[in-house]
Write a protein that binds this DNA or RNA. Structure first.
Lengths: 297, 297
DNA sequence: CATATTGTTTCTTTATTGGAAAAAGTGTTA
DNA sequence: TAACACTTTTTCCAATAAAGAAACAATATG
């Protein structure tokens, strides 16, 4: 039996509260988790968890063991991070959670270049629209645009800022008339983005414009596509619209108006020693976005 | 790979200085040790030991890793000892080194009873005439009659005291005359015991008697056998002669003379938490000898 | 330069791990 | 009280990894 794995498993079970959750989350089978815990108990000669099919309860011994397991595992992690620190070539696995739209657009080329630059680091990228709990899902890193405040226990590091662009297709503008002033938006089909805090208030011009239109969606990528098809005007993050703007498929209007910016944050659990692969990745991202300023302008 | 085992192996290799020594000592094959170290290095991505066929040398990284390994392993041991502490039934393995003569005589029935009393504890008994280095040979406990001072880093706990007996066979005494006074020994075949510090000076009577005879051997068990066969007189630890005295095969002479005593010590490495099975064993031995005082009288 | 010693590699055997599915347990609900 | 929904545990089989023997390679020593 691999005792460290078993200990890790035990800690995880306590954290998530159910065997099956640990199983699906760690990509192992339920039986495996059960066996790990059982063999740990057998080796110690003590029951760690009092379990019914409905409830898991730490025994007194389990409680004590848990504390010590955590300490030992932390120390092991620190040790390995410390060794890695002194190596030229970082290696290991990074499990990253990122916002879907980011992953599909701005981050993809950055990830690709990172993989070229660090051939010994494996990536496990999970894109999701909802911000996932990093600890629960065992992520090393989350990449999120700042909206919700960070949980304590996490470090949030600003990576870059993104700007928005107001886009329409040339054909649409031809048909529906130009947009030269924020107030012009009132006469246009403006798409609403579901996750936008201010809903149908676009923060452009002095005090914003309350837009109206027939389309509302929860995906900026989807909205951009509708813009391309000439269905209306979108308030689209520049990192999404950038390629389409370059190719001329869509054009930007009200470019000189002040629009809010959003900040991309890297979130990761606080630790004694962050594994070097993680520090490197964050540095890399900051550099990468510094070298690709058009996404922010 | 079982990282825990590998770390243990690594520490051991550094302690013993050679792969092959660890192999034979731990009962594994050389290839196993080699693989353990290699896979540990592979996982860390760093070389721990610079090795030629003649010399092992810790790399700088290896040195640091070693420290941390030791710390982690110690903590793990403490944790398990602490858990065991709270269990009713101690379990595990005890690797014990004992003096050959002790094991063959006094200790054998004690071990047997211990095994009956603690069915979940395995024993690995290594009898040897030379006192072995406990750490090097990975013993949990050494049972030695006090002679050499204890190394620092070890705890020595007195278990019991043994007395000596001066023995001869009835037939021998019949032929060679009785022994009623220490000086009578001068006219008898007295056996010399090689490991005796004072060699041919028997510490009996006021200032001892310088004995003479034709037989010298390094085993009291062997000497007793020669006594049984009527070849002469032996200065024999009582725990060895006891059964023969009981059966009448040999008789004791000069029983009322003062003779030195020797102390049986349990030696074990100092640790934060001694595993309960070890504490129990030592307690057990003390009790056992308290219940069998005839060995000491 | 031969030799003895030691770590590594290779190959085969053996033991262990891991997963799918069935079974058993447990609290809830009809 | 019985059916149920949801868990953990067990069982069995396949895949994987560990372990050992022996041949191999490397290197200080005399």
């Amino acid at each position: 039996m691999d005792k460290f794995k078993a200990m890790q498993c035990f800690v995880r079970v306590v954290e998530l509260g159910r065997f099956s959750k640990v199983a699906e989350q760690s990509g192992a089978s339920k039986s495996m988790i059960s066996k790990q815990i059982s063999s740990l108990e057998a080796e110690l000669g003590a029951r760690l968890l009092q379990r019914t099919t409905r409830r898991l309860q730490l025994t007194q011994l389990g409680e004590e063991y848990l504390q010590r397991c955590r300490e030992i595992l932390r120390q092991l992690e620190d040790t390995e991070a410390h060794i890695q620190e002194q190596q030229q070539v970082p290696k290991g696995r990074l499990r990253i959670n990122a916002a879907m739209a980011l992953g599909l657009t701005a981050l993809a080329p950055a990830f690709a270049e990172f993989m070229r630059q660090y051939p010994d680091i494996e990536l496990d990228i999970q894109l999701s629209d909802e911000a996932q709990d990093l600890l629960e899902h065992n992520f090393d890193l989350g990449l999120r645009v700042a909206s919700q405040p960070f949980d304590s226990g996490y470090v949030g590091k600003a990576i870059t800022q993104f700007s928005y662009s107001i886009c329409a297709s040339p054909a649409y503008l031809q048909q529906n008339g130009p947009i030269n002033h924020p107030d012009d938006l009132l006469n246009h089909q403006c798409f609403e983005y579901s996750y936008f805090r201010s809903k149908n208030l676009w923060p452009v011009g002095a005090e914003g414009v309350v837009i109206g239109g027939r389309l509302k969606a929860n995906s900026s990528v989807f909205l951009l596509d509708m813009v391309k098809q000439g269905m209306g005007v979108g308030f689209i993050p520049r990192f999404i619209s950038h390629p389409a703007l370059q190719s001329g498929e869509v054009v930007e209007v009200l470019a000189s108006e002040q629009k809010p910016r959003m900040t991309l944050y890297a979130l990761y659990p606080v630790r004694h020693f962050a594994p070097p692969r993680l520090s490197r990745f964050i540095e890399f991202l900051q550099n990468w976005f510094a070298r690709h300023p058009y996404l922010c302008s």
